[in-house]
């Protein structure tokens, strides 16, 4: 499961080992952790006092509102895809970014497959914890890059900065660069 971060420079593998905790798991003394929402709400001061990084992960049914008051204290928010076919996190990502103005890292975790990475990036994720294919073939920066560059054009305005086809047409009609 390679974790990568998308930056202006491109796709960068993340070396930090993150431990994803469940509701009843003990918080390790050291190391970066992702904690569930309930743990965050109950123990946020203690978690922030740790030396190592802490992030919060939301389950698919948990809303962006539940974190809205804490977003300026968080550098990592992760949204879980319990199955790749459960698309709630795409809307949660839009709300975190566009309604609540969250600018920290937004990470996709869970059933994160190559074929859905474009949607994730378009809705505001900038970190992807990508799962390997069933055959065991490795996921590399190159395979992620290939998956993300599958489409050179988009029709809609989403969170990412890509201009929709309608804007390209307007530029073309105005005699600019298509």
């Amino acid at each position: 499961m390679p974790l990568v971060k998308l930056t202006a420079a491109g796709i960068e593998p993340v070396d930090t080992v993150w431990t994803r905790l469940g509701t009843d798991d003990a918080v390790p003394a050291a190391g970066a952790v992702l904690v569930p929402l309930a743990r965050w709400q109950a123990e946020k001061e203690a978690l922030l006092a740790r030396a190592d990084a802490v992030g919060v992960w939301l389950a698919a049914g948990e809303t962006a509102d539940s974190l809205s008051a804490d977003l300026d204290r968080l550098t990592v928010v992760a949204l879980d895809f319990p199955a790749f076919s459960d698309g709630r996190a795409y809307s949660t990502a839009r709300l975190l970014r566009d309604r609540f103005g969250y600018r920290g890292e937004l990470r996709a975790i869970g059933d994160v497959l190559l074929d859905q990475l474009i949607q994730m990036v378009r809705t505001g994720f900038d970190a992807l914890d990508v799962k390997a294919p069933v055959s065991g073939a490795p996921v590399t920066v190159e395979t992620i890059q290939a998956a993300l560059s599958r489409y050179s054009l988009v029709y809609q305005v989403a969170h990412d900065a890509r201009p929709p086809v309608s804007a390209l047409r307007r530029r073309l009609a105005a005699g600019g660069q298509g």
Binding site: S85, Y90, R94, I118, A158
Partner: peptide, 13 residues
């Protein structure tokens, strides 16, 4: 048609 084609947010409803 264009708006709904590969809409990134609404492909796994």
């Amino acid at each position: 048609r264009q708006w709904s084609t590969f809409h990134p947010e609404f492909t796994y409803l």
